[in-house]
Amino acid sequence: MVDNGVVTAAPEDGPRLSGVIRPTARRFAEVVCPPEVRADHRTERVLREFGLMLGALPSAARKALTTALILLDQGARVYPPARGRRFARLDDRTAEAYIRALLARRDAAAEMVQRLKGVVTMCYYDLPEVQREIGFDPAPYIAAVSRRRLETYGPQIRAGEAVVTERLPEPGLPEPGLPEPEGLPEPGLP
């Protein structure tokens, strides 16, 4: 059960975004993610992640978010500066202003857009190169501290793991050799 924790996981297979919502999701990602989303085909990978996340949601939530994207797209037609165009066809400035206007409403529509924004930006910041750009690169760190752990505490770890398959004394009976609990709660807790 002891390992060094550096694992490269296999790519996941998962659902792809339908052609109906894909252009809207793409435009939405371009607005809510930082401008660098347009570099190096990142938008494509954000959409792939978004498809995987939608696939993990319960069907009701998936349908709600999908419907929200469709409404977001078509709702732009009644946003005066859009001059009848759907969201997916708006220029950058108008698309951004439209999203800003929706979020400012503080109603159910704003909540849904905020939720969508949360999921899409999560997908963007889940991309490894984006994480590295902001200084988050956990694999080497995990490998280093995992090694330190084994070098420093190897025998204690093996002894502790052996507890899993040992037969411990029953509750209420003396338990020789068990460690004393550390840091027990103090009086005065709720």
């Binding site: 930082p34 951004e96 999560m122």
Partner: peptide, 24 residues
Amino acid sequence: SPTMLAGILPAYGRELGAQMADYN
């Protein structure tokens, strides 16, 4: 993690990028 933090910050677009640049 950056993934979770980006999901809860209310900012988006360039402003989100500026906030996340300070992740560390």
